[in-house]
Design a binder for these strands. Structure first.
Lengths: 373, 373
DNA sequence: CGCATGAATGGGAGCGCTCCCACACACGGG
DNA sequence: CCCGTGTGTGGGAGCGCTCCCATTCATGCG
């Protein structure tokens, strides 16, 4: 039996050929029906569809990919050097959104964790060889060359979060600046006089934005600041921790330990702090611990606000007021953007991109009030 | 130019043919080198490898899959009706393990969230058509038909967690019974007299195991129980909440709300409860809340132990004593088992499976002591 | 009434690979 | 000196699909 080859035993389903035969049409016509080409008569279409149903035909992706030169798959790339605490809630939300949006397309979702140099190189090569049609990049660091590499090889890609304000690769981000501003305004509105902040690593754009929001809210409220009256530019937000004008800034690294250390540092610098805006919930958990150790009550002595609205926030005692990002929606938006990009990119024939969708998108953030403030 | 077809513009990398030409050998030989066949002379091997390096050759997966009849991909299937709280930490740990173990193979990881009937059918069909080589199933419910469906179409699959003690599909599980036993023994060892438990939904095998562990520990300690002296069978563990012999069992659903409600119920039934073993950390968080509301101190008045060692446990106040499962290792083990299955399964020619690896594996659990007990 | 025009269709070519058959070519024993 | 026996090797035949060219009709126009 010359038919059974390769993987053997794999009773691979019916082929297009068989469907066509059953419907009494040619292979080409069957293909046209299955791919929804308009150039097919109604009768024929019905016949083929019936045959598909009867035979339970499922197109062979490999064959399709090989013939069409597209893989019908997109990769979700997650760098894994990241502290898992940071990645957890954010990542699973993104995943949910991506998967939901992809459910209607019949594209596959390929998950790639990049954990070291070797796996990064592997993926780069893989992408360069066009083994996927598009790439979603989650939590990219400012110095990550991957986005540019992908652009160079003509691989459509969408980032979650910018690497800088000059980001030229398409991205979906949330409004970190406004979110931080809301948080700090809220603290001021609750009558807090000495509002400090614990920032993320300031080589990350999101962290800088949140710090800028902090400064902006204080300035707007008329509190003295480093640049009185001047609109603090996000790019310039990277300034010494002990800013002039008495603002209380401590830099940490989005980890709980970092938040704990930063809070102790703040208390040492100014024991009268009565509010802290933390650039992540996890850091807020660390700060909470430091406050408890110093005998301070939350929210009575010190009000606390976090960022992310992750599970940690709900489980803290008291529950943490925090800034919620629409993470699932960000995942969905990333997919929509990528699909649009993929629809236009591979067409070099002058067509000026029908509607690529906004290649950069900033989604709103929202303050969730809970017991900690 | 008759060469540029299909996807256009996709400057797909060099082909095997080109590599072979460059190395001055035939296509077949080049293929043999790349797939590590031993029947190649050292000289030739070196020449081909050099050509591969120079050209930056990356094999085309689609072509390979089509020709070989195997897809070089496995699917990780996650049912999504699941409450996200439960899924979060567990899922991301599994993912880490799976991905790590898969990094050395050059198999792709395909992620499939199943959210409704429609997507389930779609996946079933997809698998039946052998579009993946194997399937990893996470958090399967006792009545889920998917595992059997997959077995029927000859698709290798591995479960995380059994559906019952008679599970016949290969699985990796953790030792829920022993873990629960450790937890309850620990509580007894701390001098607690009235140890209650909050179980998961008792139509889930893991929940029944944990309950059985509770009973077993109490019986071993000589506390009166429903079946004095008898070894409580896991299968029989599904008994009325108000068990004879004074044991305190409340059933919940692995959610925080459920844990909260169950704790209130327990306190009502017996206000003198001085310890509670919760079958999940999340439920313990709910129980913690109920205890606080009732004015009881943890651990002074009531000691609390959870299960999972998730992030919630570390962030509770006081930090939660809990039973840790080696979740990442479970992910790794699942992949190893699946690969073994895939290596043997497709061979129908009588070969009695060289070393399929243990088709069922139960990994140990461990008690993590923290402030809550 | 004949011929250009378009719609619907059939089927060849080929995507890049693996499998496997056939073909060298080097041996050693009869 | 001829024939196994083995080791490397080349390349044909597809895998199931999409693309596209050719073909067949039915239609409308000159």
């Amino acid at each position: 039996m010359p038919a059974a080859r390769g993987g053997d035993a794999q009773k691979t389903g019916p082929t297009l050929e068989q469907v066509a035969a059953r419907a009494g049409v040619g292979r080409g016509t069957a293909s046209r029906v299955i791919n929804g080409s308009p150039r097919v008569s109604e009768r024929t279409r019905a016949a083929v569809q019936a045959a598909v149903a009867e035979l339970g035909y499922v197109p062979n992706r490999a064959a399709r990919a090989l013939a069409a030169g597209s893989m019908d798959a997109i990769a979700l790339v997650v760098p894994e050097q990241e502290n898992r605490l940071f990645a957890e809630p954010y990542f699973s939300e993104i995943l949910r959104g991506v998967s939901a949006e992809l459910a209607d397309t019949d594209k596959q979702l390929l998950l790639t964790l990049i954990r070291d140099e070797r796996s990064r190189d592997r993926f780069t090569q893989y992408a360069a060889a066009h083994r996927v049609d598009g790439v979603l990049l989650v939590s990219v660091h400012a110095d990550d060359p991957l986005p540019d590499l992908l652009r160079d090889v003509g691989m459509p890609a969408v980032l979650s979060g910018r690497r800088s304000s000059a980001e030229h690769v398409p991205y979906v981000d949330s409004d970190n600046l406004l979110g931080a501003q809301l948080a700090v305004e809220h603290l001021i509105g609750r009558g807090r006089r000495k509002v400090a902040t614990i920032t993320g690593p300031l080589d990350m754009y999101a962290a800088r934005c949140r710090l800028a929001g902090y400064h902006e809210a204080l300035t707007a409220a008329g509190r003295t600041g480093p640049e009185p009256g001047a609109r603090p530019a996000v790019e310039a937000a990277h300034r010494p921790a002990a800013a002039p004008g008495g603002r209380l800034v401590a830099e940490a690294d989005f980890t709980e330990e970092g938040g704990h250390r930063a809070m102790r540092e703040l208390l040492e610098r100014d024991p009268d702090v009565d509010a802290v805006f933390c650039a992540s919930d996890v850091m807020a958990a660390g700060a909470r611990l430091a406050l408890r150790e110093s005998g301070r009550d939350v929210p009575h002595d010190v009000a606390l606000v976090g960022f992310d609205d992750s599970a940690v926030a709900r489980h803290m005692d008291p529950p943490l007021t925090t800034v919620k990002q629409p993470i699932e929606e960000m995942g969905r938006a990333m997919v929509r953007m990528l699909l649009a990009l993929m629809g236009t990119e591979p067409d070099p024939r002058g067509a000026p991109a029908p509607d690529a969708g906004q290649p950069q998108l900033v989604l709103p953030t929202e303050l969730i009030r809970r017991g900690s403030s």
